[in-house]
Design a protein around this nucleic acid. Structure first.
Lengths: 329, 329
DNA sequence: GTGAAAGCGCTAACAT
DNA sequence: ATGTTAGCGCTTTCAC
């Protein structure tokens, strides 16, 4: 590995001049520039990022913290993040914080240590400690919190409008004439759950449908959970079912099919997330789509904006989505 | 951010002593150690990784280079990689090299610049330049090539035994009594394609079945490709079809079903990869599974071994897999 | 058992 | 337009 000193010697200049050229300074004679560039080329020289980081602080690196090892839903999103970051001249460091986010603090500290310029923080589960730490470091490092429902933390935040979109689904069903609209919600420990559920409630109200507790089932975020909820719900003869996630909806669909219930003939069904499996079920699942790739891009854009204007007031971005009608409605 | 100097001052010692303690030296008076540790605690001190990297070279970081943005098949594998790396005290840097691996060289250089201790390189498409570069840097950085069929490069390599496993599938079908076994291979540009196809040929030979060119179709690695191949193949009345990937097999399955061919009644079908969709098709697809998580762990283990013994001869690991019989056989 | 001093590769302030 | 100099925070001889 050759150093800036080697380049300087080969080009017959001082290392300051080389450094200036590397930094893109214009105050250089053309002939000097040429010689230095030739030397760089010849030696295959690349500046050490440690020395640079030590002097400059900035590293041109973004970190993405993701819960649960590589959940499939994040793939498109990551693609969006990396693409946009790359186009803006940033590298991306992806860290999965493990189930229950048990590595969150460890990775957070490590990223600070590595002086990343910005952090994109994902977590469905609210972690007070991490949030407090993020707020603490946000004076030095740009931070954007994703998918979390903030309560008072002074942090930027981007998330999908789970409430509004669920409401939209409910209203669609109501407009179609359904009155007995059931809801399969996830476990209560997540903010996302509560938020989407609120959308269900709002949708009922706006459609003038009275709430019926018997039409709501809570279930684990799995297909089994969805199947169980469908079984419990079926005795209530719903005309439509909205589920908090596609997995839940798919589980319900499976149970309904196996028990001779025709979808959408006997009951309508709408999921949430638009995971790839939706087009593989029979009938194919209607759902709410968030355009994950775009979410990723917006997240990075937001992060870069924060880096540019560190003193701006924290802002919250609510992202829309789309009702995708396939064959279960 | 406090520095080692702050710690030294607070503890009333020199920074040398602090550094020694950080490095785990035993030659320290107990009282000194206590004072220093207290100071570290109080200042929330974390050594700068730039200064460390500059002095030591090593960074306790591994890089994974992946082709095509977050292909689903890699998720389990990455989980294996990260878990094992973490347990061994390493951070993992994940870089997706984009479609056609167009960012390969860029990222490779960046990783070298960041002095990662090891690189896990994935790419189905052979890239001479990248391979040459990897060979070049392998004297300084541990490198393990994944999934590539090396030709003479002096590099460690881990890959799944595509040939042997395909052979196993063919022999299974032959043992079941099938004679007319067709094969859907991928496009010829990939080494993996050739390798798996060779397994088909070997399987036929070992089973004493003469090769029939009419029973082989080449197709793009998509469901559409698989469907087209199935259509072309059907006129040849095969008793069984083996496909180079699950996507191909699933496409074929779709076409067969839609054209009234019963699977496995009229024809047996086996895929390769065991992607999650396999259990979602009807009937569920029999396939060859590679235990991706384990592949990831083995890859890291191999990389760490190389780091320990930089002068060992390059080795090639061929990983086995498992024939998973579901409902298409 | 502890410290002083040199230097890793780079940038930036200050000459010239 | 180019060079000199002084560190960034750390580890590592080498003294004491």
């Amino acid at each position: 590995m050759s150093t800036i000193y080697d380049v300087a010697r080969l080009a017959g200049v001082s290392k300051t001049t080389v450094s200036k050229i590397l930094g893109g300074s214009k105050n250089v004679r053309a002939s000097t520039l040429e010689r230095v560039n030739a030397a760089i080329e010849e030696l295959d020289y690349v500046p050490s990022c440690f020395a640079q980081g030590m002097r400059k602080g900035a590293t041109n690196t973004l970190a993405v913290l993701l819960p649960e090892q590589y959940n499939y839903g994040y793939m498109e999103l990551l693609a969006g993040v990396e693409d946009y970051a790359d186009r803006s001249g940033y590298m991306t460091f992806v860290c999965s914080t493990g189930r229950d986010g048990r590595y969150e603090e460890k990775y957070l500290k490590e990223m600070v240590r590595r002086k990343v310029d910005g952090i994109l923080y994902f977590a469905y589960r609210r972690n007070e400690k991490s949030l407090a730490y993020l707020e603490h470091i946000s004076t030095n490092i740009a931070v954007v919190v994703m998918d979390n429902v903030l309560r008072g933390e002074r942090l930027d935040c981007v998330r999908v409008d789970g409430s509004g979109l669920t409401k939209q689904a409910v209203r669609y069903l109501a407009d179609k004439g359904c009155r007995r609209i059931a809801y399969i919600r996830g476990l209560g420990t997540y903010d996302v759950t509560t938020e989407r559920y609120q959308g269900y409630l709002d949708g009922l109200e706006e459609s003038g449908i009275p709430f019926d507790a018997g039409l709501v089932q809570e279930a684990e975020f799995t297909m089994e959970g969805g199947a169980g909820a469908a079984r419990a719900l079926w005795s209530q003869k719903p005309e439509a079912v909205v589920a908090a996630t596609d997995m839940l909806a798919l589980g319900a669909l499976n149970w309904l099919e196996e028990n001779g219930v025709r979808v959408p003939g006997d009951v309508n069904l709408i999921g949430f997330d638009n995971i790839p499996l939706c087009v593989w079920s029979r009938p194919r699942l209607s759902t709410i789509s968030q355009n994950q790739r775009q979410v990723g891009e917006i997240a990075v854009k937001h992060l870069l904006a924060r880096m540019d204007e560190p003193d701006q007031e924290p802002s919250r971005l609510l992202l829309g989505g789309e009702l995708i009608l396939r064959e279960t409605t």
